[in-house]
Amino acid sequence: MHRMYPVRSRLARALAARGLGLALLLYLLHARFSRPNFYESGPDIYVLVLLPLAGALACSAALCAWRMFRSTPWFATSTMGVFLDCSLLGPTTIRWDDIDQLGEYHGPLHDSLAISLLPRGLERLGFRRRLWIGLGLGGNEGRVHVPANMIPTNLSELSAELNAMIRHRGRIGS
């Protein structure tokens, strides 16, 4: 059984980066709003772009801080299946019977543990999670992705160990 908790130093660095970015955006917005003719000149495209960006960055920083102080695992295996709480899908449990394959995915931006699901496994995820996967957020093409930087162990070793566990249970051939 695996239980992997967040690496707090990574979360602290991510939170610091988001905080600095938010401070810079707020400084730029303040500089724009403090101009004497700002309210007379009409809407500024600069502000219309920075305001939603600052809001998204603030939400991201709040989520990062929330995850930093929670004590629940991001990734856990049990006799029922795999529990994930480290992707955009939110807390998700995937039963062993619904998994088609487990493997490494080497994408253009980052590596991840890819969990390929059977069609009934996708159905059990629910509409919202299927929509996220269809849009390429948290997975794609019937796969759920667990980012490698969220797993504190070696991705290859974890993938091999989980595949051995699945083969040992006799749920998946090869």
Rank of each mutant, 00 (worst) to 15 (best):
V146M: 03
L22T: 05
S174I: 07
G138K: 00
N154R: 07
Y39Q: 07
P6M: 12
L162S: 08
F33Q: 01
F69P: 08
L28V: 08
Y105I: 08
L51D: 07
R124H: 00
N154P: 04
A76Q: 02
H168V: 05
N37A: 15
I99S: 01
P43S: 03
R70C: 14
L88P: 00
H145T: 08
G142Y: 02
M4A: 13
P36T: 03
R143F: 04
S41K: 10
R171D: 03
P43Q: 03
A17Y: 05
A61C: 11
S116I: 08
W74T: 06
L88N: 00
L137M: 15
E161N: 06
R35C: 06
Y105E: 13
S159H: 09
P36W: 02
A23H: 04
D98N: 04
H110I: 09
A76R: 00
S116H: 11
L53A: 14
R129Y: 08
F69D: 09
W74K: 06
G21I: 05
L50W: 10
N149D: 15
T92E: 04
G21M: 07
M68F: 13
G170A: 09
L24G: 08
V82K: 03
G126R: 14
S112I: 01
R130D: 00
S78D: 07
I133F: 09
L162N: 09
Y105D: 13
R13S: 05
S41G: 10
N37M: 14
V144S: 04
G138W: 00
E123S: 04
R120Q: 02
Y105G: 13
M80N: 02
L57D: 11
A17C: 05
L11N: 09
A17W: 06
R120I: 00
T77H: 08
H145E: 14
A62I: 11
A160M: 03
L15P: 02
R167H: 10
A31D: 15
A16G: 08
A23T: 02
G170H: 07
L89R: 06
G21L: 07
D98M: 01
R128M: 15
L26I: 02
R95T: 01
F33I: 01
F75L: 12
L122A: 00
P152Q: 10
P91C: 10
S60F: 07
L50A: 11
L109C: 10
Y46I: 10
T77L: 06
G170Y: 06
M4W: 14
M80H: 01
V144W: 04
A160C: 04
C86D: 09
Y46H: 11
P119M: 12
L57S: 13
G55T: 13
A31G: 12
C86E: 07
R129N: 08
R129P: 11
G19I: 07
A114Q: 10
D111G: 05
S156C: 12
R171T: 02
T93P: 05
H106L: 14
R67F: 04
A164H: 05
D44H: 13
L155K: 03
R120A: 01
D85H: 14
L51Y: 09
A23C: 03
A76N: 00
W74I: 09
L131M: 12
S156G: 14
F127Q: 06
L11D: 10
R128K: 14
Y27M: 01
S174G: 10
